[in-house]
Structure formats: structure tokens, C-alpha cells
Simulated scan of single mutants.
Amino acid sequence: MVEVFKTNVQEADEAHSIIQRLLEHFPDYLINFDLEDCDKILRIKGEKIDSEKVCKIVGQTNADCSVL
């Protein structure tokens, strides 16, 4: 399963930090950002992705996150 999220993450360092935080909760997920995309895409691949929890964790970093 692949889930795609729209974010407002601008910097690679911020994206890396968010990925590390997400991997603490979801170590089996494959996670990446596409900061070149106008929607600053966060893409997660894994089984049974908990979109609400992902958005909550990203939100704790003061970044916006919503499912596309």
C-alpha cells in the first residue's frame, strides 16, 4: 500500500528529521519526500498505513500534513 500526503515542508533537513521520527513509530515503512513537487509530497509505502497517526506525528513538528 502507498499513501501520499501533502505537506508544507521546505528544507531537506526538516524532511530528514520527520522521516527519522516516522521511522521510530513505523520501522517497516519506506518513507520519502519529494520537495521539488509543488505539494511537497510525503510518500509512505507499507502495510496498513495509519494516515491519521502519520499526520499527527508530522504535525508535532509544526508541519502541515494531509492525505492526497
Rank of each mutant, 00 (worst) to 15 (best):
G59A: 02
K56W: 03
D34S: 05
K48L: 15
D28N: 06
E11Q: 09
P27V: 10
Q20V: 05
K56V: 04
R43Q: 06
A12R: 13
L22T: 06
S17Q: 15
V9S: 01
E52G: 12
V58I: 15
G46C: 07
G46T: 06
E24I: 05
P27A: 09
K6H: 10
L30K: 12
C55A: 15
N8F: 03
L30I: 12
I31L: 11
A15H: 03
H16Q: 14
E52H: 08
L42H: 00
K53A: 07
S17M: 12
L22W: 07
D34G: 02
I31H: 10
D39F: 14
D39Y: 14
E24S: 10
C38F: 14
C38R: 13
L22C: 09
K56D: 07
I44L: 09
P27S: 14
G59L: 01
G59N: 03
K45V: 11
C55H: 06
I49Q: 06
E36V: 08
H16E: 14
I44V: 13
Y29L: 09
I41Y: 09
V58W: 10
I31A: 11
L22G: 07
A12W: 09
I49F: 07
V9F: 06
I44N: 01
K6I: 15
V9G: 02
D28I: 04
I49M: 05
E24P: 02
I44S: 01
K48Y: 15
N32F: 15
V54C: 01
E52N: 11
A12E: 15
Y29R: 10
F33S: 02
R43M: 05
Y29A: 10
E11C: 09
L23R: 12
L35W: 03
I18F: 04
K45F: 04
Y29Q: 08
K6N: 13
K6G: 07
I19N: 01
S51M: 11
D37P: 06
E47Y: 06
R21Y: 10
R21L: 13
H16A: 13
R43I: 06
K6Q: 14
K48A: 14
R43C: 02
S51E: 11
N8C: 04
K53M: 08
R43S: 07
I19H: 00
L23Q: 09
R43W: 01
I49H: 07
D50S: 12
L23V: 00
E11A: 07
K53H: 14
L30T: 15
K48P: 04
L35Y: 04
A12H: 09
N32R: 15
R43N: 00
C55S: 15
E52L: 11
R21Q: 14
D34V: 02
N8Q: 03
P27D: 09
F26N: 07
R21W: 05
Q20D: 13
C38P: 10
F26D: 12
I18C: 02
A15F: 04
Y29E: 10
I19P: 00
E14L: 04
E14F: 05
G59M: 00
L23W: 02
E36T: 09
G59H: 03
E36R: 11
K48Q: 12
I19F: 00
V9N: 03
L23H: 08
F26Q: 11
P27E: 08
K53I: 04
H16P: 01
D13C: 11
N8V: 05
